[in-house]
Design a protein around this nucleic acid. Structure first.
Lengths: 222, 222, 222, 222
DNA sequence: AATGAATGAGTGTTCATTCAT
DNA sequence: TATGAATGAACACTCATTCAT
């Protein structure tokens, strides 16, 4: 009946649908992030969004639907932000570092929503859970592309790229998941820098090290 | 009234208390892991444990209490298994590798419960949440001890140890969190080995590399 | 947060709130009176009122709240009926007798609810219990006002007015509390008349006796 | 099967039965009086009595049974104390005053249990409720006997004796029911004295007044 | 005679969802 | 489109009662 990635609405006007859904998801994201999925009621969401309970059901089939769109939006943000960050950069190493930095920054911005991703994905219907995981996989692949390009260009020595990419992802997510331990000890920018020292630099080739040095100098000037 | 770490019981006999709690927590761990905290009912737990609903309330104050002990047990297992694994080993590098391997293996054994840790810690009362996080911190410190010893002994070059330890932890947890992606591609033992290649070897000193080679040869013989 | 005398509602429209609460309290009064507070379930009340369980919780915070409004209504009825009964009468003795008669009659009308007052006040939260007792005190004071006026006017001889007022109250309540013994032996009107013979006439002065005789004649004519 | 006034026990030794029941009823009276019947659990009673839950069921059929014996004991105390108080006194007026005083005093002693009588009689099974009411009626009849004797002897003028007796009863009970209002304003002894002024003296004949004066003088000497 | 662990029916309460307006 | 009053299934939790020891 309904494909896992789309969400039906009883309302015709697509512009209104867009607008209302955004309004509702914004409220839901805030509340789900603060209190979790099960402790957030539809009435809470309606109140936070400044609309009536019934209206939510004009734009979403059920509560699961709201969660789905909320998580989908987080994933989509990831997928949008990272390409945007590396766009314009040519050098493979620069692209890799920019991608990692962008990931950390978007996690910082969507801190609570990222945690929500870990907490609540399992609350979704099975097919939608898969859909969300595929979104994550797509994001990973973007990082993987950057890493492979750097290997192909001879800046990074051959290595288990897919596992290393997971480390990039986990490192970024950790900024949200372990904020209670990390914040206060690092600024976001320091955290990114440390990440690169830990998860990129040790794998650079001679050529890569030289390139990295040049990049750092350039960045310092800018 | 009640300290966050203890759980009151209406039953006097400590042996029975121990036994029943274990029985209940075992059932709860299974169900919480499969369906999450909120979708698991007390009835479910009772049925799974083969006892009556009322009996659960003789050994736990409320549902939160059951979750707490469940999570506490996971953390305590971590804290027990890792020292046991490195006991007997003398060499700092060996101790570090054993610790990482032990962590991955205990995560494998408590796979669902580890995921539960990420999903449900926030469902706990605030003071208990803190208590659980302190347990995690203690585990981290054990790894940190190993890493620092290896640095002090000149096998690992000076590095941001606390962040690297986080990578060890995340790497281990990922085996549970991302099992949908990792299993099928790696066996547990391969995964451990890859982890060491990715998160230990790049940071070895000359001396460390030599020591590591010797350790590997020894392991292959055994 | 909530003052003891008010009851919050999730519904906005005050007219509907009024109507629904009346409907619910009416059902609750019947059931509480027949079976007592603890044997009456919210399900029972919903069924009796012809509404759903959930709806009760839109108009009352909890079961205690329903009991409170039920008892409050009884007390308020007392406070309304007695002034209405003596309004228009000028003569202090007439006012006193009318007040006593009105009290007996309202107890007769709210027979079961009056018994409920004795049975269930202690089931209320402490602050609300006090609130209810203050309502009773206010009613007593109205009777006390009548009695004192009659003493001041020289119709009743000086006497322990506050204790005598308690006797009036108890005499009225007894009509409900001891109905199993009194009904069948007295009609309500006879009971009122006997009460006046027992608790008013013995304390009349010469002047009071004369006035009382005149009042009785007048009443007989009307 | 079981007559309403008796309570079966699984234990043979009548002395032990007597002793245990007393122990249990004592605990129950305290708790029922403080918290009411429904808020008191069998576990509470067992704890208060210092015995096990199971043991209560060796001496009582069910919880209703415990309440019944508790109330029965109160009524029996009334029935025992009043005759004892008037025993030895010859003069009808003196007997009447002693009876009223004794009633007030026993109510004072069993203050909470007397309130319990009002709150919880309706919680009993129907036949036992009747049984308890008959006990009350018996007590009333003792007072009625005193009053009638005083009338017959020409000390009290002919009057609606049964209703006046109710006033005596209510007056005594009020000491428990309205203790929140009465205590602090009267001592028990003053309260008794005021009662006699209000509910006996106004109905005395000339002869009665003379006799009462003599009695008071005598009492003052003693 | 005495214990107290075990039971499970029954309670108050919540909240996703519907639908008349 | 939008509202929010109304529904009722489902849940956590309690406690009178039983029974193996």
């Amino acid at each position: 009946m309904s494909s896992p990635g789309s969400v039906e609405s009883a309302v015709a006007d697509p512009k209104l649908v867009e607008e209302r859904r955004e309004q509702i998801v914004k409220a839901a994201t805030k509340l789900f992030s603060e209190q979790g999925y099960y402790l957030t009621t539809i009435q809470d969401i309606a109140r936070e969004a400044g609309i009536s309970v019934g209206l939510i059901y004009q734009y979403f089939k059920d509560k699961d639907d709201v969660l789905f769109l909320t998580l989908k939006l987080v994933l989509e943000t990831y997928e949008k932000v990272i390409p945007a960050a590396i766009e314009g950069a040519e050098h493979p190493l620069e692209r890799l570092c920019l991608a990692i930095g962008a990931y950390c920054r978007v996690v910082d911005r969507l801190r609570d929503a990222t945690v929500l991703t870990y907490r609540s994905t399992k609350s979704l219907r099975a097919d939608r859970r898969t859909f969300i995981k595929e979104g994550e996989t797509r994001t990973n692949r973007m990082l993987e592309g950057c890493l492979r390009a750097a290997i192909a260009a001879g800046h990074v020595r051959p290595i288990n790229d897919s596992l290393l990419v997971y480390q990039y992802v986990l490192y970024s997510h950790a900024w949200a998941l372990k904020q209670w331990a990390l914040r206060g000890r690092y600024s976001l920018e320091d955290y990114v820098e440390e990440g690169i020292k830990l998860l990129v630099e040790p794998f650079l080739t001679e050529k890569g090290r030289a390139a990295m040095a040049r990049l750092k100098r350039k960045r310092r000037v800018a």
